[in-house]
């Protein structure tokens, strides 16, 4: 569904993407995980035509973004990190304009708008002005809008950033459901638990480079599934073990004590880069 090769992008002297290559298959829920400034949003902006690349190739569902940009865009839906709805228009008007931009016939526009507002639990908000909606509702509306034209591929750039934990869980359920309905999802996030909960496959991006990819479980297993956190000399240290028993034995030998927990993607990222995601 997505194939990018040797993608490069600089902003002045800062290299934002450094020969980034990856591919995402049809039906996958793929997460791009990395700290702020790692290059996640730059990659998504290039793949959706919002930014220009310096070099490299990008193919969306068989359509080359350089040669057939409009065809590629027709196949994608995008939920940007910033809320980019028209605040002065109503919910229904925002959806209607989107449908027209994608050349959808009037009857289909109205039918899908009603269907997707129901899908995101906003069927009673169609006439409300967008500027009166809460942050969570705006995010859900952006997802409904991105799905309106029936894309096979949905880009979600930090879809839950700024949302409170309860709303975040609702958005996660929605994303899972969209993927189960057959839509390929490319997600960027810097929330560890988001990537672990949602993604079938994860890629770490650090300083514009893809440093590892695989299933969340596989990436955690490389480090060790269990961690022991200790606090020594003013700094926290984590040691990793394949089993809980090994971790427990290690902890028993520590005079200062510590805590055993399950390892997560943050540990895998830290192990590779020496830096935390957040």
């Amino acid at each position: 569904m997505i194939r990018i090769e040797k993608l490069k992008k600089s902003f002045g002297k800062k290299l934002a993407l450094d020969s980034l290559s990856l591919s995402v298959g049809k039906g996958e829920l793929f997460a791009f995980l990395g700290p702020n400034g790692a290059g996640k949003t730059t990659a998504i902006r290039i793949m959706t035509g919002l930014s220009r690349k310096d070099s490299g190739t990008c193919e969306i569902a068989g359509a080359d973004l350089d040669r057939e940009p409009l065809k590629a865009k027709r196949l994608c839906g995008l939920v940007t990190q910033n809320v980019n709805l028209d605040g002065e228009l109503s919910v229904a008007e925002n959806l209607d304009i989107h449908g027209r931009l994608f050349a959808m016939p009037g009857k289909l526009r109205r039918q899908r708008a009603s269907e997707y507002l129901g899908y995101v639990g906003m069927e009673d908000r169609a006439k409300d002005l967008v500027k009166t909606l809460s942050g969570g509702l705006k995010r859900r509306l952006m997802i409904a809008r991105a799905l309106l034209h029936g894309p096979g591929l949905l880009f979600l750039d930090e879809p839950t950033v700024g949302l409170d934990p309860g709303i975040r869980r609702k958005v996660w359920s929605l994303i899972k459901r969209i993927n189960q309905d057959g839509v390929t999802i490319f997600l960027t996030t810097h929330y560890i638990e988001e990537a672990e909960f949602l993604a079938g496959r994860v890629a770490f991006i650090h300083e514009g480079r893809l440093i590892q990819e695989g299933t969340p479980a596989g990436m955690i297993a490389k480090v060790g599934e269990w961690a022991v956190d200790t606090f020594e000399g003013g700094a926290m240290r984590s040691d990793f073990f394949a089993s809980r028993e090994e971790a427990g034995s290690f902890l028993a030998g520590l005079p200062a004590g510590g805590a055993v927990r399950r390892a997560n993607l943050e540990d895998a990222f830290l192990d590779l880069t020496g830096k935390r995601v957040l």
């Binding site: 959706t48 065809k71 940007t80």
Partner: peptide, 11 residues
């Protein structure tokens, strides 16, 4: 409003 991005991402 960043609404221009909606046009940029559309065909």
């Amino acid at each position: 409003f960043h609404a221009f991005e909606e046009f940029q991402a559309a065909p």
